[in-house]
Design a binder for these strands. Structure first.
Lengths: 208, 208
DNA sequence: CTCCTTTTCGACTATCGGTCGGTTTTAGTA
DNA sequence: TACTAAAACCGACCGATAGTCGAAAAGGAG
């Protein structure tokens, strides 16, 4: 049936917006249904629980955030750019920065954490293929690729999700990436241009 | 006054135990007070909120988990062993594995995450000093030490907190650590002996 | 004893996630 | 068109839970 699916999508979008602006914990089911103009029963006709709604909202976000990564894999870009592109694609887009800002508020750790985990899981195979491509081209040289790729992703997530990361962090991250993949020293240095350290442009300093 | 502090500590210990066994979300304030044999009002005389109780419980756990790290710093162990010791110290002790097991249940992500963050923040300066010691001895060679140390901790936390990590993960982690600190290849290989991969001894395979 | 502070009490409130029995809409079918 | 079964919807109600509050003990210090 069509009707039902449209309604569910509508609810999902309302939930998405509310979860992100107010935080998951601070959004009540009543908030969602009053905004949608439906009754409690209707909500629970579409969702088993509030938690399941969160899970589906997260699914939506992940699909949105990872589809770019897939496109990059099939693009004709040079391998190092592909890697940067993929890592950048799972970072907040400029126009969504306010969203991601909200994502990091303390009341959203749950959602944030779940998203990160699932994104990594989905991106590892993509990045693995890219690295293998780089190895064939003689740019990289390493074994245990999925494991290495996973660590890269864990690091980039953990570091760049912070409120502020320093230029030194970026420096070290590039260094690790090169050594991790057995790339030539400096071959990833161009990343520095692409990543804006919030600490270097802002007035407030200090970690965390 | 003495009376009050003892009571608070008592409550904190009950909360600690319940949070860990049942999970933070699944532990009600009523659970805590009924176990302590006090009234609701008394609980809120000592704590502003349930959330603040969690914060204080976490503080306790962190003090306990990081005091070992401090002792290792001042011990006469060789530098590589010190590093392994520190990293191991912020991992679940064998006799506490059931506790940490509960820590990783889905209902405890919040607590778990908060703990990890704060432990890393506290351990970075300690590990930094150890690495500096290693540099003086010519074992390591690198700059930007706090940043590198932080990444090591982020990785070890993220990897070894998983339900299962493979031998390949350990392999790569060792490789990264050596390259990160500019250590000689193989100088950290002895770590392998110390870390038991749950995937290698268990029957169930597959990541996550 | 009196006065003040610390500690304790428990009934009460507000909110929230979730349930349930029943009603209306929709869409297919005779 | 009339009937029917399924899909969609409703909202009163429930149980649990975090947090409040005014008052009552408990415990000194003078």
């Amino acid at each position: 049936m069509k009707k039902g699916e449209r309604r569910k999508l509508e609810l999902l979008e309302i939930a998405y917006r509310l979860f992100i602006t107010k935080g998951y914990e601070n959004t009540s089911v009543d908030d969602i249904i009053s905004e949608a103009g439906i009754a409690k029963g209707t909500y629970y006709y579409y969702f088993e629980s509030k938690e399941q709604t969160l899970e589906e909202v997260i699914g939506m976000m992940i699909d949105k955030e990872t589809e770019t990564a897939g496109q990059i894999l099939d693009s004709p870009l040079p391998v190092p750019q592909k890697i940067v592109g993929v890592i950048a694609s799972i970072r907040p887009a400029p126009e969504e920065s306010s969203i991601e800002g909200a994502l990091m508020q303390p009341e959203n750790i749950v959602m944030h954490q779940k998203i990160k985990r699932r994104i990594i899981e989905k991106v590892v195979p993509i990045l693995t293929k890219i690295v293998e491509e780089g190895i064939e081209q003689g740019i990289f040289s390493c074994d245990l690729i999925p494991e290495r790729v996973r660590m890269m992703l864990v690091l980039s997530n953990e570091l760049f999700d912070e409120y502020d990361f320093t230029n030194a962090d970026v420096e070290v991250f590039i260094d690790i990436t090169e050594k991790l993949l057995g790339a030539k020293k400096g071959s990833m240095a161009f990343v520095k241009q692409l990543i804006q350290s919030p600490a270097s442009s802002g007035t407030k300093g200090g970690r965390k």
